[in-house]
Design a protein around this nucleic acid. Structure first.
Lengths: 249, 249
DNA sequence: CATTTGCTTGCAGGTTTTTGCAGGTTTTTA
DNA sequence: TAAAAACCTGCAAAAACCTGCAAGCAAATG
Protein backbone atom coordinates (compact mmCIF):
# COMPACT_ATOMS: atom_id res chain seq x y z
CA UNK A 1 0.00 0.00 0.00
CA UNK A 2 1.24 3.42 -0.94
CA UNK A 3 2.04 5.93 1.75
CA UNK A 4 -0.41 8.55 0.50
CA UNK A 5 -3.07 5.92 0.15
CA UNK A 6 -2.53 4.90 3.72
CA UNK A 7 -2.68 8.47 4.91
CA UNK A 8 -5.90 9.06 2.98
CA UNK A 9 -7.38 6.05 4.70
CA UNK A 10 -6.31 7.36 8.08
CA UNK A 11 -7.93 10.71 7.41
CA UNK A 12 -11.08 9.06 6.29
CA UNK A 13 -11.10 6.95 9.43
CA UNK A 14 -10.55 9.99 11.58
CA UNK A 15 -13.36 11.91 9.94
CA UNK A 16 -15.66 8.95 10.23
CA UNK A 17 -15.11 8.00 13.86
CA UNK A 18 -13.63 11.23 15.17
CA UNK A 19 -10.72 9.30 16.62
CA UNK A 20 -8.26 6.57 15.75
CA UNK A 21 -5.82 4.48 17.76
CA UNK A 22 -2.31 3.87 16.49
CA UNK A 23 -2.44 0.26 17.60
CA UNK A 24 -5.70 -0.44 15.77
CA UNK A 25 -4.51 1.18 12.57
CA UNK A 26 -1.18 -0.59 12.76
CA UNK A 27 -2.92 -3.91 13.06
CA UNK A 28 -5.48 -3.20 10.34
CA UNK A 29 -3.15 -1.81 7.72
CA UNK A 30 -0.39 -4.19 8.64
CA UNK A 31 2.47 -1.79 9.12
CA UNK A 32 4.46 -1.07 12.23
CA UNK A 33 3.15 1.35 14.80
CA UNK A 34 6.14 3.54 14.14
CA UNK A 35 4.96 4.05 10.60
CA UNK A 36 1.49 4.95 11.77
CA UNK A 37 2.94 7.37 14.27
CA UNK A 38 4.97 9.03 11.57
CA UNK A 39 1.88 9.27 9.38
CA UNK A 40 -0.11 10.84 12.16
CA UNK A 41 2.70 13.26 12.82
CA UNK A 42 2.83 14.32 9.19
CA UNK A 43 -0.92 14.70 8.90
CA UNK A 44 -0.95 16.69 12.10
CA UNK A 45 1.74 18.97 10.70
CA UNK A 46 -0.46 19.53 7.66
CA UNK A 47 -3.36 20.32 9.93
CA UNK A 48 -5.46 17.40 8.76
CA UNK A 49 -5.97 16.00 12.23
CA UNK A 50 -4.94 16.44 15.84
CA UNK A 51 -2.39 14.00 17.19
CA UNK A 52 -2.77 12.82 20.76
CA UNK A 53 -1.06 10.23 22.88
CA UNK A 54 -2.12 6.86 21.51
CA UNK A 55 -3.70 8.02 18.27
CA UNK A 56 -5.37 11.05 16.73
CA UNK A 57 -8.59 13.06 16.80
CA UNK A 58 -10.59 14.74 14.08
CA UNK A 59 -10.03 18.44 13.81
CA UNK A 60 -13.62 19.30 13.00
CA UNK A 61 -14.65 17.48 16.15
CA UNK A 62 -12.84 19.88 18.38
CA UNK A 63 -12.37 22.85 16.14
CA UNK A 64 -13.06 25.38 18.85
CA UNK A 65 -10.11 27.19 17.50
CA UNK A 66 -9.02 26.64 13.93
CA UNK A 67 -5.43 27.78 13.57
CA UNK A 68 -4.93 30.47 10.99
CA UNK A 69 -1.48 29.34 10.02
CA UNK A 70 -2.62 28.76 6.48
CA UNK A 71 -3.11 32.45 5.96
CA UNK A 72 0.62 32.87 5.79
CA UNK A 73 1.18 30.27 3.08
CA UNK A 74 -0.99 32.08 0.58
CA UNK A 75 0.15 31.82 -2.95
CA UNK A 76 -0.31 34.73 -5.29
CA UNK A 77 -3.63 33.44 -6.44
CA UNK A 78 -4.85 33.15 -2.90
CA UNK A 79 -3.86 36.74 -2.28
CA UNK A 80 -6.01 37.69 -5.25
CA UNK A 81 -8.81 35.55 -3.91
CA UNK A 82 -8.80 37.36 -0.57
CA UNK A 83 -9.09 40.73 -2.25
CA UNK A 84 -11.88 39.47 -4.49
CA UNK A 85 -13.84 38.08 -1.58
CA UNK A 86 -13.84 41.44 0.13
CA UNK A 87 -16.16 42.66 -2.63
CA UNK A 88 -18.79 40.04 -1.95
CA UNK A 89 -21.70 40.72 0.34
CA UNK A 90 -24.51 38.54 1.61
CA UNK A 91 -27.39 38.15 -0.80
CA UNK A 92 -25.43 39.02 -3.89
CA UNK A 93 -25.88 37.28 -7.19
CA UNK A 94 -22.52 36.51 -8.77
CA UNK A 95 -21.37 35.32 -12.17
CA UNK A 96 -17.97 33.69 -12.43
CA UNK A 97 -15.88 32.32 -15.26
CA UNK A 98 -13.37 29.51 -14.95
CA UNK A 99 -9.65 29.50 -14.29
CA UNK A 100 -7.39 28.66 -11.42
CA UNK A 101 -7.70 32.09 -9.87
CA UNK A 102 -11.44 31.74 -9.60
CA UNK A 103 -11.01 28.25 -8.15
CA UNK A 104 -8.84 29.71 -5.42
CA UNK A 105 -11.48 32.30 -4.73
CA UNK A 106 -14.15 29.62 -4.49
CA UNK A 107 -12.02 27.68 -2.02
CA UNK A 108 -11.48 30.72 0.14
CA UNK A 109 -15.11 31.81 0.45
CA UNK A 110 -15.95 32.32 4.13
CA UNK A 111 -18.24 29.54 5.37
CA UNK A 112 -20.96 31.83 6.68
CA UNK A 113 -21.36 33.70 3.37
CA UNK A 114 -24.83 33.47 1.84
CA UNK A 115 -24.97 34.36 -1.82
CA UNK A 116 -25.84 32.87 -5.21
CA UNK A 117 -23.05 31.84 -7.57
CA UNK A 118 -23.41 30.98 -11.22
CA UNK A 119 -20.76 29.29 -13.33
CA UNK A 120 -20.16 26.87 -16.15
CA UNK A 121 -16.73 25.76 -15.03
CA UNK A 122 -16.74 22.27 -13.57
CA UNK A 123 -13.72 22.69 -11.26
CA UNK A 124 -15.13 25.95 -9.93
CA UNK A 125 -18.53 24.36 -9.42
CA UNK A 126 -16.95 21.53 -7.46
CA UNK A 127 -15.58 24.07 -5.02
CA UNK A 128 -18.85 25.96 -4.77
CA UNK A 129 -20.59 22.66 -4.13
CA UNK A 130 -18.53 22.06 -1.01
CA UNK A 131 -19.55 25.36 0.50
CA UNK A 132 -22.24 25.00 3.17
CA UNK A 133 -24.37 28.07 2.59
CA UNK A 134 -24.18 29.43 -0.93
CA UNK A 135 -26.64 28.63 -3.68
CA UNK A 136 -25.11 27.35 -6.88
CA UNK A 137 -26.52 27.52 -10.36
CA UNK A 138 -24.94 25.45 -13.09
CA UNK A 139 -24.80 26.78 -16.62
CA UNK A 140 -25.44 23.81 -18.82
CA UNK A 141 -24.32 23.08 -22.38
CA UNK A 142 -21.65 21.15 -24.21
CA UNK A 143 -18.54 20.71 -22.12
CA UNK A 144 -15.30 21.93 -23.62
CA UNK A 145 -12.57 19.50 -22.55
CA UNK A 146 -9.75 21.96 -22.91
CA UNK A 147 -11.19 24.75 -20.81
CA UNK A 148 -13.45 22.56 -18.65
CA UNK A 149 -16.36 24.93 -19.00
CA UNK A 150 -19.65 24.64 -20.79
CA UNK A 151 -19.85 26.54 -24.06
CA UNK A 152 -22.52 27.11 -26.65
CA UNK A 153 -25.76 28.87 -27.41
CA UNK A 154 -27.65 27.52 -24.44
CA UNK A 155 -24.98 28.71 -22.06
CA UNK A 156 -24.95 32.19 -23.61
CA UNK A 157 -28.71 32.44 -23.55
CA UNK A 158 -28.87 31.38 -19.92
CA UNK A 159 -26.29 33.93 -18.86
CA UNK A 160 -28.20 36.69 -20.62
CA UNK A 161 -31.29 35.85 -18.59
CA UNK A 162 -29.58 36.98 -15.43
CA UNK A 163 -28.77 40.36 -13.99
CA UNK A 164 -25.88 39.81 -11.60
CA UNK A 165 -24.39 42.13 -8.99
CA UNK A 166 -20.85 41.05 -9.71
CA UNK A 167 -18.99 39.21 -12.41
CA UNK A 168 -15.62 37.64 -11.65
CA UNK A 169 -13.48 36.97 -14.69
CA UNK A 170 -10.28 35.01 -14.46
CA UNK A 171 -8.44 36.54 -17.39
CA UNK A 172 -5.55 35.42 -19.58
CA UNK A 173 -4.26 38.76 -20.76
CA UNK A 174 -4.95 42.43 -20.26
CA UNK A 175 -3.43 45.45 -21.90
CA UNK A 176 -4.23 49.18 -21.72
CA UNK A 177 -4.72 49.42 -25.45
CA UNK A 178 -6.52 46.19 -26.32
CA UNK A 179 -8.32 45.61 -23.05
CA UNK A 180 -8.98 42.02 -22.01
CA UNK A 181 -7.97 39.40 -24.56
CA UNK A 182 -8.11 35.62 -24.73
CA UNK A 183 -7.31 32.76 -27.07
CA UNK A 184 -10.45 30.64 -27.11
CA UNK A 185 -13.43 31.86 -29.06
CA UNK A 186 -16.01 29.97 -27.04
CA UNK A 187 -14.61 31.29 -23.80
CA UNK A 188 -14.55 34.82 -25.16
CA UNK A 189 -18.22 34.64 -26.07
CA UNK A 190 -19.11 33.46 -22.59
CA UNK A 191 -17.11 36.18 -20.92
CA UNK A 192 -18.70 38.81 -23.12
CA UNK A 193 -22.14 37.59 -22.17
CA UNK A 194 -21.18 37.65 -18.51
CA UNK A 195 -19.89 41.19 -18.78
CA UNK A 196 -23.15 42.34 -20.33
CA UNK A 197 -25.20 40.65 -17.64
CA UNK A 198 -23.39 42.08 -14.64
CA UNK A 199 -23.60 45.43 -12.90
CA UNK A 200 -19.93 45.35 -11.95
CA UNK A 201 -17.15 43.52 -13.77
CA UNK A 202 -14.15 42.35 -11.73
CA UNK A 203 -11.05 40.98 -13.46
CA UNK A 204 -8.72 38.64 -11.58
CA UNK A 205 -5.21 38.21 -12.90
CA UNK A 206 -1.74 37.50 -11.67
CA UNK A 207 0.54 40.45 -12.35
CA UNK A 208 2.50 38.34 -14.82
CA UNK A 209 -0.41 38.40 -17.25
CA UNK A 210 -0.91 42.15 -16.98
CA UNK A 211 0.31 44.05 -20.07
CA UNK A 212 0.20 40.98 -22.27
CA UNK A 213 -2.16 40.26 -25.15
CA UNK A 214 -3.90 37.31 -26.75
CA UNK A 215 -5.46 37.06 -30.22
CA UNK A 216 -9.14 37.66 -29.43
CA UNK A 217 -10.58 40.67 -27.66
CA UNK A 218 -13.03 40.05 -24.84
CA UNK A 219 -13.79 43.66 -24.06
CA UNK A 220 -12.19 47.11 -24.04
CA UNK A 221 -10.85 48.54 -20.82
CA UNK A 222 -13.85 50.77 -20.17
CA UNK A 223 -16.11 47.77 -19.57
CA UNK A 224 -14.03 46.79 -16.56
CA UNK A 225 -14.86 48.20 -13.16
CA UNK A 226 -12.25 46.55 -10.97
CA UNK A 227 -8.90 44.88 -11.58
CA UNK A 228 -7.37 42.65 -8.91
CA UNK A 229 -3.81 41.35 -8.89
CA UNK A 230 -1.56 40.03 -6.16
CA UNK A 231 0.52 43.18 -6.40
CA UNK A 232 -0.38 46.46 -4.74
CA UNK A 233 -2.19 49.22 -6.63
CA UNK A 234 0.89 51.46 -6.73
CA UNK A 235 2.77 48.98 -8.89
CA UNK A 236 3.95 50.95 -11.99
CA UNK A 237 2.73 48.12 -14.21
CA UNK A 238 -0.79 48.91 -13.04
CA UNK A 239 -0.54 52.68 -13.51
CA UNK A 240 -2.14 52.75 -17.01
CA UNK A 241 -5.25 51.07 -15.68
CA UNK A 242 -5.65 53.47 -12.81
CA UNK A 243 -5.31 56.33 -15.28
CA UNK A 244 -7.94 54.74 -17.50
CA UNK A 245 -10.42 54.89 -14.65
CA UNK A 246 -10.27 51.26 -13.57
CA UNK A 247 -10.37 50.66 -9.84
CA UNK A 248 -7.23 48.67 -9.10
CA UNK A 249 -6.99 46.64 -5.90
CA UNK B 1 3.76 0.27 -28.00
CA UNK B 2 3.60 3.97 -28.61
CA UNK B 3 4.05 6.49 -25.86
CA UNK B 4 0.57 7.97 -26.16
CA UNK B 5 -0.95 4.54 -26.23
CA UNK B 6 0.93 3.59 -23.10
CA UNK B 7 -0.12 6.72 -21.32
CA UNK B 8 -3.73 6.18 -22.29
CA UNK B 9 -3.50 2.72 -20.81
CA UNK B 10 -2.04 4.09 -17.62
CA UNK B 11 -4.84 6.62 -17.27
CA UNK B 12 -7.42 3.97 -17.83
CA UNK B 13 -5.76 1.81 -15.23
CA UNK B 14 -5.66 4.65 -12.74
CA UNK B 15 -9.30 5.49 -13.29
CA UNK B 16 -10.26 1.88 -12.94
CA UNK B 17 -8.34 0.96 -9.81
CA UNK B 18 -7.74 4.39 -8.32
CA UNK B 19 -4.07 3.60 -7.99
CA UNK B 20 -1.19 2.13 -9.90
CA UNK B 21 2.29 0.99 -8.90
CA UNK B 22 5.27 1.87 -11.05
CA UNK B 23 6.69 -1.60 -10.57
CA UNK B 24 3.50 -3.37 -11.66
CA UNK B 25 3.08 -1.21 -14.73
CA UNK B 26 6.69 -1.60 -15.70
CA UNK B 27 6.36 -5.33 -15.54
CA UNK B 28 3.04 -5.45 -17.39
CA UNK B 29 3.86 -3.10 -20.22
CA UNK B 30 7.41 -4.33 -20.43
CA UNK B 31 9.24 -1.05 -20.27
CA UNK B 32 11.67 0.18 -17.68
CA UNK B 33 10.44 1.73 -14.47
CA UNK B 34 12.15 4.95 -15.50
CA UNK B 35 9.87 5.21 -18.50
CA UNK B 36 6.82 4.61 -16.36
CA UNK B 37 8.02 7.23 -13.93
CA UNK B 38 8.46 9.71 -16.73
CA UNK B 39 4.98 8.91 -18.00
CA UNK B 40 3.51 9.39 -14.57
CA UNK B 41 5.36 12.65 -14.22
CA UNK B 42 4.02 13.94 -17.52
CA UNK B 43 0.48 12.86 -16.78
CA UNK B 44 0.73 14.46 -13.38
CA UNK B 45 1.91 17.71 -14.97
CA UNK B 46 -1.14 17.59 -17.21
CA UNK B 47 -3.30 17.04 -14.18
CA UNK B 48 -4.52 13.65 -15.31
CA UNK B 49 -3.44 11.89 -12.13
CA UNK B 50 -1.55 12.44 -8.92
CA UNK B 51 1.93 11.07 -8.67
CA UNK B 52 3.11 9.70 -5.36
CA UNK B 53 6.17 7.83 -4.19
CA UNK B 54 5.84 4.37 -5.66
CA UNK B 55 3.18 5.01 -8.27
CA UNK B 56 0.17 7.26 -8.79
CA UNK B 57 -3.36 7.87 -7.57
CA UNK B 58 -6.44 8.94 -9.44
CA UNK B 59 -7.45 12.52 -9.09
CA UNK B 60 -10.95 11.73 -7.89
CA UNK B 61 -9.34 9.61 -5.22
CA UNK B 62 -7.79 12.65 -3.68
CA UNK B 63 -10.74 14.92 -4.31
CA UNK B 64 -13.22 12.77 -2.54
CA UNK B 65 -10.65 11.38 -0.17
CA UNK B 66 -12.30 8.01 -0.27
CA UNK B 67 -9.97 5.10 -0.83
CA UNK B 68 -11.62 2.51 -2.99
CA UNK B 69 -12.04 -0.08 -0.32
CA UNK B 70 -13.90 2.44 1.76
CA UNK B 71 -16.57 3.19 -0.81
CA UNK B 72 -19.59 1.27 0.18
CA UNK B 73 -19.76 -1.95 -1.84
CA UNK B 74 -16.94 -0.84 -4.06
CA UNK B 75 -16.14 -4.02 -5.93
CA UNK B 76 -19.80 -4.74 -6.53
CA UNK B 77 -20.24 -1.35 -8.09
CA UNK B 78 -17.23 -1.95 -10.27
CA UNK B 79 -18.71 -5.23 -11.45
CA UNK B 80 -21.94 -3.44 -12.33
CA UNK B 81 -19.99 -0.78 -14.19
CA UNK B 82 -18.29 -3.38 -16.37
CA UNK B 83 -21.60 -4.93 -17.35
CA UNK B 84 -23.15 -1.54 -18.05
CA UNK B 85 -20.31 -0.56 -20.34
CA UNK B 86 -20.89 -3.60 -22.49
CA UNK B 87 -24.17 -2.00 -23.59
CA UNK B 88 -22.52 1.11 -24.92
CA UNK B 89 -21.53 1.45 -28.55
CA UNK B 90 -19.70 4.11 -30.46
CA UNK B 91 -21.85 7.03 -31.49
CA UNK B 92 -24.52 6.50 -28.89
CA UNK B 93 -26.24 9.31 -27.06
CA UNK B 94 -26.53 8.51 -23.39
CA UNK B 95 -28.37 10.03 -20.44
CA UNK B 96 -27.12 9.29 -16.96
CA UNK B 97 -28.25 10.14 -13.47
CA UNK B 98 -25.96 10.51 -10.46
CA UNK B 99 -24.84 8.07 -7.80
CA UNK B 100 -21.67 6.19 -6.99
CA UNK B 101 -22.54 3.33 -9.33
CA UNK B 102 -22.70 5.69 -12.28
CA UNK B 103 -19.44 7.32 -11.19
CA UNK B 104 -17.77 3.93 -11.28
CA UNK B 105 -19.13 3.38 -14.74
CA UNK B 106 -17.79 6.73 -15.89
CA UNK B 107 -14.35 5.85 -14.55
CA UNK B 108 -14.29 2.52 -16.32
CA UNK B 109 -15.26 3.75 -19.78
CA UNK B 110 -12.72 2.45 -22.29
CA UNK B 111 -10.45 5.24 -23.56
CA UNK B 112 -11.20 4.76 -27.23
CA UNK B 113 -14.98 4.97 -26.81
CA UNK B 114 -16.63 7.78 -28.75
CA UNK B 115 -20.08 8.70 -27.58
CA UNK B 116 -22.07 11.59 -26.14
CA UNK B 117 -22.93 11.64 -22.45
CA UNK B 118 -25.40 13.90 -20.75
CA UNK B 119 -25.70 14.38 -17.00
CA UNK B 120 -26.47 16.88 -14.28
CA UNK B 121 -24.41 15.21 -11.60
CA UNK B 122 -21.21 17.09 -10.86
CA UNK B 123 -19.15 14.11 -9.65
CA UNK B 124 -20.20 12.09 -12.68
CA UNK B 125 -19.39 14.99 -14.98
CA UNK B 126 -15.94 15.29 -13.46
CA UNK B 127 -15.24 11.72 -14.47
CA UNK B 128 -16.63 12.19 -17.95
CA UNK B 129 -14.45 15.25 -18.31
CA UNK B 130 -11.31 13.20 -17.77
CA UNK B 131 -12.17 10.91 -20.65
CA UNK B 132 -10.23 11.69 -23.84
CA UNK B 133 -12.81 11.03 -26.53
CA UNK B 134 -16.38 11.34 -25.35
CA UNK B 135 -18.53 14.42 -25.75
CA UNK B 136 -20.11 15.71 -22.58
CA UNK B 137 -23.21 17.81 -22.20
CA UNK B 138 -23.94 19.44 -18.88
CA UNK B 139 -27.51 19.84 -17.72
CA UNK B 140 -27.64 23.20 -16.04
CA UNK B 141 -29.89 24.48 -13.26
CA UNK B 142 -29.83 25.03 -9.52
CA UNK B 143 -27.44 22.66 -7.82
CA UNK B 144 -28.83 20.50 -5.06
CA UNK B 145 -26.15 20.21 -2.40
CA UNK B 146 -27.41 16.96 -0.97
CA UNK B 147 -27.56 15.00 -4.19
CA UNK B 148 -24.92 17.03 -6.07
CA UNK B 149 -27.04 17.16 -9.19
CA UNK B 150 -28.82 20.02 -10.89
CA UNK B 151 -32.57 20.09 -10.33
CA UNK B 152 -35.39 22.30 -11.49
CA UNK B 153 -37.53 23.24 -14.44
CA UNK B 154 -34.67 24.12 -16.74
CA UNK B 155 -33.03 20.77 -16.19
CA UNK B 156 -36.27 18.92 -16.84
CA UNK B 157 -36.97 20.93 -19.96
CA UNK B 158 -33.50 20.33 -21.31
CA UNK B 159 -33.72 16.59 -20.77
CA UNK B 160 -37.04 16.47 -22.58
CA UNK B 161 -35.40 18.03 -25.64
CA UNK B 162 -33.25 14.99 -26.17
CA UNK B 163 -33.91 11.56 -27.54
CA UNK B 164 -31.24 9.30 -26.12
CA UNK B 165 -30.27 5.77 -27.05
CA UNK B 166 -29.66 4.72 -23.48
CA UNK B 167 -30.46 6.00 -20.04
CA UNK B 168 -28.42 4.81 -17.06
CA UNK B 169 -30.13 5.23 -13.72
CA UNK B 170 -28.33 4.62 -10.46
CA UNK B 171 -31.27 3.62 -8.32
CA UNK B 172 -31.89 3.53 -4.61
CA UNK B 173 -34.61 0.93 -4.43
CA UNK B 174 -36.48 -1.42 -6.73
CA UNK B 175 -39.33 -3.77 -6.04
CA UNK B 176 -41.49 -5.97 -8.29
CA UNK B 177 -44.68 -4.36 -7.06
CA UNK B 178 -43.73 -0.68 -6.76
CA UNK B 179 -41.07 -0.52 -9.42
CA UNK B 180 -38.24 1.95 -8.94
CA UNK B 181 -38.59 4.19 -5.91
CA UNK B 182 -36.52 6.98 -4.38
CA UNK B 183 -36.61 9.47 -1.52
CA UNK B 184 -35.89 12.84 -3.12
CA UNK B 185 -38.64 14.53 -5.07
CA UNK B 186 -36.30 16.57 -7.27
CA UNK B 187 -34.26 13.54 -8.18
CA UNK B 188 -37.40 11.56 -8.95
CA UNK B 189 -38.58 14.20 -11.38
CA UNK B 190 -35.27 14.19 -13.18
CA UNK B 191 -35.20 10.43 -13.46
CA UNK B 192 -38.74 10.40 -14.79
CA UNK B 193 -37.80 12.91 -17.45
CA UNK B 194 -34.77 10.84 -18.39
CA UNK B 195 -36.86 7.69 -18.68
CA UNK B 196 -39.26 9.43 -21.04
CA UNK B 197 -36.45 10.74 -23.20
CA UNK B 198 -34.61 7.47 -23.71
CA UNK B 199 -35.21 4.55 -26.02
CA UNK B 200 -33.83 2.07 -23.52
CA UNK B 201 -33.79 2.43 -19.73
CA UNK B 202 -31.03 0.68 -17.81
CA UNK B 203 -31.15 0.50 -14.02
CA UNK B 204 -27.94 -0.01 -12.06
CA UNK B 205 -28.24 -1.28 -8.52
CA UNK B 206 -26.34 -3.36 -6.04
CA UNK B 207 -28.26 -6.52 -5.21
CA UNK B 208 -28.70 -5.29 -1.66
CA UNK B 209 -31.07 -2.59 -2.84
CA UNK B 210 -33.13 -4.97 -4.92
CA UNK B 211 -36.49 -5.78 -3.34
CA UNK B 212 -36.46 -2.71 -1.14
CA UNK B 213 -38.69 0.36 -1.41
CA UNK B 214 -38.47 4.10 -0.85
CA UNK B 215 -41.34 6.58 -0.40
CA UNK B 216 -41.63 8.05 -3.90
CA UNK B 217 -42.21 6.10 -7.08
CA UNK B 218 -39.96 6.87 -10.03
CA UNK B 219 -41.56 4.46 -12.47
CA UNK B 220 -43.31 1.11 -12.64
CA UNK B 221 -41.40 -1.99 -13.66
CA UNK B 222 -42.63 -2.02 -17.24
CA UNK B 223 -40.74 1.16 -18.05
CA UNK B 224 -37.46 -0.58 -17.37
CA UNK B 225 -35.69 -2.42 -20.15
CA UNK B 226 -32.58 -3.69 -18.42
CA UNK B 227 -31.60 -4.27 -14.79
CA UNK B 228 -27.93 -4.68 -13.88
CA UNK B 229 -26.64 -5.92 -10.54
CA UNK B 230 -23.36 -7.42 -9.47
CA UNK B 231 -25.09 -10.77 -9.03
CA UNK B 232 -25.80 -13.17 -11.86
CA UNK B 233 -29.21 -13.28 -13.57
CA UNK B 234 -30.11 -16.62 -12.02
CA UNK B 235 -30.12 -15.15 -8.52
CA UNK B 236 -33.54 -16.00 -7.00
CA UNK B 237 -33.85 -12.42 -5.78
CA UNK B 238 -33.92 -11.33 -9.42
CA UNK B 239 -36.46 -13.91 -10.54
CA UNK B 240 -39.51 -11.59 -10.25
CA UNK B 241 -37.94 -9.13 -12.63
CA UNK B 242 -37.12 -11.71 -15.25
CA UNK B 243 -40.70 -12.91 -15.03
CA UNK B 244 -41.95 -9.35 -15.45
CA UNK B 245 -40.12 -9.12 -18.76
CA UNK B 246 -37.11 -7.11 -17.63
CA UNK B 247 -33.80 -8.14 -19.14
CA UNK B 248 -31.56 -8.91 -16.18
CA UNK B 249 -27.78 -8.90 -16.58
C1' DC C 1 18.21 9.54 -50.71
C1' DA C 2 21.25 11.05 -47.16
C1' DT C 3 21.31 13.98 -43.31
C1' DT C 4 19.71 16.36 -39.62
C1' DT C 5 16.97 17.12 -35.89
C1' DG C 6 14.34 15.93 -32.12
C1' DC C 7 12.06 12.71 -29.33
C1' DT C 8 12.07 8.43 -26.73
C1' DT C 9 14.07 4.97 -24.00
C1' DG C 10 17.19 2.34 -21.03
C1' DC C 11 21.05 2.52 -18.04
C1' DA C 12 24.68 4.04 -14.75
C1' DG C 13 25.49 6.62 -10.77
C1' DG C 14 24.32 8.91 -6.83
C1' DT C 15 20.49 10.79 -3.84
C1' DT C 16 16.26 10.65 -1.27
C1' DT C 17 12.33 8.34 0.85
C1' DT C 18 10.33 4.87 3.32
C1' DT C 19 10.18 1.54 6.76
C1' DG C 20 11.16 -1.42 10.65
C1' DC C 21 13.89 -2.05 14.62
C1' DA C 22 16.83 -1.25 18.72
C1' DG C 23 17.50 1.26 22.78
C1' DG C 24 16.25 4.71 25.85
C1' DT C 25 12.66 8.25 27.54
C1' DT C 26 8.15 9.93 28.64
C1' DT C 27 3.30 9.35 29.61
C1' DT C 28 -0.51 6.78 31.22
C1' DT C 29 -2.76 3.81 34.30
C1' DA C 30 -3.71 0.58 37.83
C1' DT D 1 4.93 4.12 42.43
C1' DA D 2 5.75 0.54 39.28
C1' DA D 3 4.40 -1.72 35.14
C1' DA D 4 2.68 -1.06 30.60
C1' DA D 5 2.03 1.48 26.76
C1' DA D 6 3.33 4.98 23.82
C1' DC D 7 6.87 7.83 22.37
C1' DC D 8 11.29 9.58 20.29
C1' DT D 9 15.98 9.22 18.12
C1' DG D 10 19.10 7.28 15.33
C1' DC D 11 20.31 3.78 12.15
C1' DA D 12 20.37 0.66 8.19
C1' DA D 13 18.47 -1.75 4.21
C1' DA D 14 15.45 -1.63 0.48
C1' DA D 15 12.97 0.73 -2.66
C1' DA D 16 12.07 4.55 -5.33
C1' DC D 17 13.84 8.59 -7.23
C1' DC D 18 16.53 11.94 -10.15
C1' DT D 19 20.19 13.45 -13.53
C1' DG D 20 22.84 13.06 -17.34
C1' DC D 21 24.08 10.45 -21.25
C1' DA D 22 24.12 7.74 -25.31
C1' DA D 23 21.84 4.48 -28.41
C1' DG D 24 17.76 3.92 -31.17
C1' DC D 25 14.18 5.59 -33.84
C1' DA D 26 11.17 8.58 -36.70
C1' DA D 27 9.83 12.54 -38.87
C1' DA D 28 11.45 16.45 -41.30
C1' DT D 29 14.68 18.66 -44.28
C1' DG D 30 17.93 19.69 -48.00
Amino acid sequence: MLKKERQALIIHRVNLHNKVLSSTLSHEINVSEDTIRRDLQELADEGKLIKVHGGALSRSFNNHFLPEYEIYSFSQKKAIAIKAISLIQDGMFILSSGGTTVIEMAKALPPQLKATFLSGSLPVLMEYMNHPNIDVIVIGDKLSKSSKITTGGDALQKIRQFRADLCFLGINAIDPQHGVTDNDWDVVQLKQAMIESAKKVVCLSIIEKVNTTQPIQVCPLNKIDILITESNPEDPRLRPYVNAGVRVI
